[in-house]
Design a protein around this nucleic acid. Structure first.
Lengths: 256, 256
DNA sequence: CGTATCATTGACGTCGGTCAATTCGTGTGG
DNA sequence: CCACACGAATTGACCGACGTCAATGATACG
């Protein structure tokens, strides 16, 4: 099934870079926002290194036991799972500022895979350090709980979308959600054109629809002059209309 | 839409009971498992009270600002959301041992509602106490992160189910997942008959299918001698077959 | 250029939804 | 104790959203 899907092989050894938190662009958006600037070395002490991964390689795969925890700094990733049937479910599109590799039981194998969509830079922490870190700095713990709780809320949103909305609305909601995230991150409130490096197949795997059907839906959205997605570029033509189509209750937006 | 669905009104004032952690049946399964038995009073000090809610009432509703956090002690609850279209998405079936009412931003209104399916007992903590609690007892923080991380994993599982599996497998997976939880909780490894107080409509709202179709699928599962769900009772006839039908990779089970 | 991946479109099939009628089960009041 | 009511479960007939299959373009890359 899906023979067309590329099997991307993992590069052998991703390069590790020296750790340097001083000019981290997304500090406030991530765990480190829990600390004051003059406390930065606390986290830097625990941190292992930075790492660059080329597009299409995996940060980790389902079944692996991880010894690290990651903080994406730049680039796009996809968390996904493969079923026995061969179908792929994309669980989440990860943008910088998230938090990857954490699990309740740190010694259990990962339940999903994390693959780079574009080139990606991640900040690497050793897992073992975390209990001690939380012990010494409860503020980081609170921050983490908050971030993970946010993941739960995003998950609910995604589940609601896939479980309850018809195709067009589902795609509209998905695009809008990513668009809002991008716009917020860039502090560019009027950038109605955004780069969106997702294939239609990936969008389909995220929304439980076939790539063919995604294509037809995108055509509809284009013809209705709501959004245009072409050449990895997303243009929002009618934000209000898109919102309406996405059937978002005002409550929905609170997550972002 | 869905005029048939009962509109259950909230009882006026649920009774508060005195707090007493000493003989809590599910202590190890919940936050409190982070502490030793002789430290129990630490948590009991923070705790507000216990509370009993009748079936069909709400613990909280989407849009409300909560000042409390809850620990279900007994009974079944459903977390859900209503879309503008009128459709309801059940996000999760809550059994004792979970953790309700937490959000990244404690002051924001809740994004979903929590309704009692059966009579329910919850253990109530004031939200405001939590920062201080975490400060003093980082172990509780770790525990919380673990519990919330577990929620994320369950969410992924649910999303995968709804997004990637055809109807029969979807229902099989759902029933199996609940069945495993129940069996584990009761430490009754051979109880292949369990009480399951969910209507077919509720199952449908959880899985993104209509009650009518759920009914037809249940008939199939019955005719294939895998499970029988009748009169709020779940009988697993063929656990192996059910697993196979649910298309679970071994990885799936790790969550429970 | 030749090849690989992604996007696009048409024809057709099916899974699950809709509508509606009937039955079942349980609780309630006479 | 029975009659009734109301929600839930069950079933059939029909329909539509979405999937499948397959062919054709468009783009990028070595």
């Amino acid at each position: 099934m899906r023979d067309r899907r590329a099997v991307w092989k993992n590069q052998s050894e991703p390069p590790n870079l020296p750790k340097d938190c001083s000019n981290c662009a997304i500090r406030d958006a991530t765990v480190c926002g829990a600390l004051r600037t003059d406390q930065l070395e606390i986290l830097q002490e625990f941190k292992s290194c930075d790492r660059i991964l080329p597009a299409h390689t995996h940060l980790y795969r389902a079944g692996e036991r991880l010894h690290e925890i990651y903080n994406p700094l730049s680039g796009w990733m996809a968390l996904y799972r493969i079923l026995e049937s061969g179908k792929r479910q994309v669980l989440q599109i990860e943008l910088p500022g998230g938090f990857l590799g954490y699990q309740a039981n740190l010694d259990e194998p990962m339940l999903h895979s994390a693959q780079c969509i574009t080139d990606v830079a991640v900040c690497v922490f050793p897992r073992r350090a975390f209990p001690g870190l939380l012990e010494r700095h409860p503020a980081i713990g609170s921050r983490l709980i908050g971030m993970v709780a946010n993941e739960v809320a995003r998950g609910h949103d995604q589940l609601t979308n896939v479980g309850s909305r018809p195709g067009v609305e589902r795609v509209a909601h998905f695009l809008l959600q990513i668009y809002m995230q991008l716009r917020q991150r860039k502090h560019a409130m009027n950038a109605d054109v955004q780069s969106l490096p997702l294939t239609q197949e990936m969008i389909g795997d995220a929304l439980g629809l076939t790539p063919v059907h995604i294509n037809r839906i995108l055509r509809q959205l284009r013809e209705r002059r709501l959004v245009v997605l072409q050449n990895r570029t997303l243009k929002v033509l009618d934000l209000g209309g898109l919102r309406k189509m996405a059937d978002r209750s005002q409550v929905d937006m609170a997550v972002f």
